[in-house]
Nucleic acid binder design. Structure first.
Lengths: 148, 148
DNA sequence: TATAAATAAATTGTATGCAATTTAATTTTG
DNA sequence: CAAAATTAAATTGCATACAATTTATTTATA
């Protein structure tokens, strides 16, 4: 089979870039599940907590920008995190349109237990350090290219 | 801030590999939408059609293996594709447990219109050829590592 | 060969994702 | 300053994802 003559080559699953991205992302997130179950967090809740572990508080808008998610996704996620007691949600006094989400003491404490997760995931991705760096840079380059 | 002394560095969003994978995947799929809308396909329906454009027919099980999806996801996707007239679904005569999904004439015809999509997506990913190859290989390496 | 084990889809239940719309608050403008 | 435009969340509707269970069929085995 001469690929130069296959006008449909670009439509083959094996020639896609997005598909392995999509598959890889889903498969890794599936690997997170047993570890996140122990923390009573979903992956989406986990990446939201990562922001709060770094920043203490954040508006829904700002969180959405960091996580590439909109309020349609975040509102139920943040309500769930509030229910678990990891964050508080309250409107900004300065601008009532903004909902400020702030981490609680219980949310801070969770960080200690979450600290073991990244190691375990790295163990299942199994890339050499320089490969991880290369992948990281390529992904951020694509994200940057799409921002334009 | 000396990173060597930050025991929480691994929990920072900027130090994750899975997160940019997840974000990249979602953002690219979002870029597919306007092009796939013209074909009346979602991304999941599109990657399923890619398999049928190559293979003519396939069981749900085999399709799930290729796409990293289970019957819980595929059943409604395939019913939807059948409704649009792009595939037929029928039980295998040899093994009634198997549902064989086969592409229709209308599904085959769709391929001609889909042929323009990959180019348009490549345009928004904007990687140099050697970067695309590197990303492709790293993603497949990770997928391979996780199969074990 | 009758029964147990295994297999394939479908179903059920929960949690995203995201476009589009709605609601409330703030900013811009005529 | 009042009306229009903008902005931020929430809501709505639809389509995934996936674990767990159920149902139907086939294979393995006592």
């Amino acid at each position: 089979m001469d690929e130069r003559k296959d006008k449909y080559a670009a439509l083959k699953l094996e020639n896609q870039l997005c598909f392995p991205l999509y598959a890889c992302s889903k498969e890794i997130i599936r690997r997170y599940r047993p570890y996140l179950d122990e923390l009573d967090l979903t992956y989406t809740q986990y990446i939201a907590m990562m922001v709060f572990w770094e920043e203490k508080q954040c508006s829904v808008k700002a969180l959405g920008k960091k996580l590439f998610l909109d309020s349609g996704t975040l509102t139920p996620v943040l309500k769930s995190l509030e229910q678990k007691g990891y964050v508080k949600r309250q409107r900004s006094a300065a601008d009532e349109r903004l909902l400020i989400v702030a981490i609680t003491e219980k949310g801070e404490n969770l960080k200690e237990r979450a600290i073991a997760v990244p190691q375990k995931i790295a163990g299942c991705i199994q890339l050499e350090p320089q490969e991880s760096v290369a992948l990281y840079q390529l992904l951020h380059k694509v994200l940057g290219n799409m921002e334009e």
